[in-house]
Nucleic acid binder design. Sequence first.
DNA 1: CGCAAGAATATGAATTCGCATGTTTCTGCC
DNA 2: GGCAGAAACATGCGAATTCATATTCTTGCG
Lengths: 173, 173
Amino acid sequence: MNTIAKKQEGVDVSDSKGFVGGYLLYLLAAASDAASADFHARVRARGLKAPEWRILACLSDEDGQMVTQLAQLSLIEQSHLTKIVDQMAVKGLVKRRSDARDRRRVRVYLTDSGRLLGAELVEAARAHERSIVRQMRPGEAALLKEALKHIHALYRAGGGVPVALEETEETSR
Amino acid sequence: MNTIAKKQEGVDVSDSKGFVGGYLLYLLAAASDAASADFHARVRARGLKAPEWRILACLSDEDGQMVTQLAQLSLIEQSHLTKIVDQMAVKGLVKRRSDARDRRRVRVYLTDSGRLLGAELVEAARAHERSIVRQMRPGEAALLKEALKHIHALYRAGGGVPVALEETEETSR
DNA sequence: CGCAAGAATATGAATTCGCATGTTTCTGCC
DNA sequence: GGCAGAAACATGCGAATTCATATTCTTGCG
């Protein structure tokens, strides 16, 4: 969903006895959506859509990445990223340049204004993150990040959690 | 992105010194995407799309929810949820019935086959979750879930983290 | 009662997204 | 050198998603 929060009462799931309220993947998605939607309001205020911000952030970290690389990093599908880069190029935030060594590759560079806006939003993102972390218990955020990296790592480069190790519905028979 | 993982080498972000690799919202999105994409493969194998699975799961927890409620819970925007329910109704997984007390409301109920498929997938989801948790340190998963609920709670019913408490870029001047 | 306001859904047009595929450019090997 | 095969992007198109708005029904109140 990931859009402007409607700020209603907000149904609380997590305290119920149902499955969903305690399901890891649900909690991940819910927390991610909620927190991101909040920041995306600020991104929109700057005239960007969420995916554009992600790209800007990734390029701020490392300028001149190739499209495929950038797509993986920014969690955007390749053909889609190509289209977003188009728009951003029109807006004057980035520019393409094909790699001299390997002309199949297209590298994406920030323009000056892209770099500026990126830096500004990264700073805002940092502040936003601090405002969240400040409301957690000391050390909780660090543990959280570690756990998230851990989960993410499980699926990188492996093609997912080894299926062989998974139980089947019949296992506990 | 949230689709079928391409099982490539997978660029590792988290070890880099950049901003993104340590940014909480990024880690949340990345972990959520990666883990969910894995399970969604199984959902697809059952002929469902990801959003349909979420709805099925929510209804399995509590049948007969109203559309708005269900939308919030399943993290799907309302008008979109309406359309998905349409399709699911065609597939014979759910059926609508307008609330007798308040005829503006439409309640969504599982059909028998919907309940069956839901139960099956919930079981698969539990197994999938176990396969993840098993690869974490003892207790890590519990801490993770608590932290996620915590974050989610920050944005429920409040209209987001109190902006007044947030720093501005100038604060640390 | 009769109405203004608001709540709950549905609908339609406009975007965004993702999959399949085409094109161009490398690479390894014969 | 010349080719088969893979890699990296771009494109086309259909499906998914969103935003704004219409519709239907309820509620509180003058």
